[in-house]
Design a protein around this nucleic acid. Sequence first.
DNA 1: ATTCTCAATTTCGTATACCGTATTTGGTGC
DNA 2: GCACCAAATACGGTATACGAAATTGAGAAT
Lengths: 217, 217
Amino acid sequence: MSAAMKPIGRPNETLADIAYQRISEALLSGEIEPGERLVMDTLAEQLDISRTPVRDALLRLQREGLVSPAGRRGFVVSKVSEQDVVHLYQAREAVEGYAARRVAEIGGEAIDKVEKTVRSMEGIDMTDPRAVYTANMEIHRTIVEVTGNPTLLELFDQIWLRARGQVAFADYLAHDKRRTSVTESHLPLVEALRAGSDAAFAGMRKHIAEGLQVHRA
Amino acid sequence: MSAAMKPIGRPNETLADIAYQRISEALLSGEIEPGERLVMDTLAEQLDISRTPVRDALLRLQREGLVSPAGRRGFVVSKVSEQDVVHLYQAREAVEGYAARRVAEIGGEAIDKVEKTVRSMEGIDMTDPRAVYTANMEIHRTIVEVTGNPTLLELFDQIWLRARGQVAFADYLAHDKRRTSVTESHLPLVEALRAGSDAAFAGMRKHIAEGLQVHRA
DNA sequence: ATTCTCAATTTCGTATACCGTATTTGGTGC
DNA sequence: GCACCAAATACGGTATACGAAATTGAGAAT
């Protein structure tokens, strides 16, 4: 998504990274369901690697809240309750609301870049939920990115990572039902960014609240 | 399913946890300085354990941003720039500002609990920077805690973890120079929480901005 | 039939060994 | 001295082995 940030050190994707991606994918696709048990030995055999990188992957997933340790009985896939979704949307409101305010304060090129990103999503395939999700996230992520605050960006990533499946589906529904493109539905947000910090803040809160509404339907 | 519930106390502290704490402590106390190299083998020998738990600890510290991998030359202790501190304070503003608003909305017992926590810090030793830091954090953490949103609390912890040394010192200075107790300096914040959501939000922003001011001095 | 006991099994945490590669070192020719 | 190259070393990633805790299952005791 960004240009070359780390020109140094391309130490080949490690097995732990691959394991992480594969397991993540399995979780996201529903191949592994919430509540199900995840055992290192089993996963290692399935992935045809040793337990060490699998362990790395699971510890990482644990820290990200996607699985939780179940004593001596492996890990269990965390279940995302309706309440959790509300909490995630609240977290978004905190982080992205603040980011919107900052972007409005910064103004200039920052907002231009956001608008450019929004418009670049014009041609995406609206029937592909995954594409819609990614486009949506890219826009919101850009808003946080142009604040120039990497800490804030990390918080954003942490929230969105945890939200994956649920929110993805919600956003897909949002655009499908209302028959609006991702670009179309985010242009008002760009307008709000140009309308000053308070308007930007309010605009983002409203935008996120709408997302939660859709999710509930 | 009314089997014996685990009294979450001590599920056996793992060596990896101990290694994490020890290394963290060394980083915080300045025993290990920013820029210095950390090598698994060396650390393992110093702690008299094998490389495996040391590796776990380092990976965790890496994810928390306290160290970063340096290719084939070990890990290096991340240094916190002045700019980073600003970014951390901004992140606090986002998370804690939102939390204050929520607490004001929730009201009732939530605010009472915050006030109780603030008042419980009456008797701490003002000459102990560590104690002042902890008391301060406890108060702010309580505010986030009573929102009932665990995701928000995680964001809070992530920010404060990374801020450690710097902020600790800053807060120490704050109370030392102004000769106010932790309780005293936070009671206005409690008042703001009772004065409605906008006042709470503004109050928290002001409170955090003051902290940054002190840091700069 | 229910509970109790205990051994087999499961599963993780830790230690140790191995491998590949990046870095450093040491030597050689100029 | 200096540039270059080859060997040695340092280092993290991965595999494998071992031990301990805890769950499980089967049979004995009540």
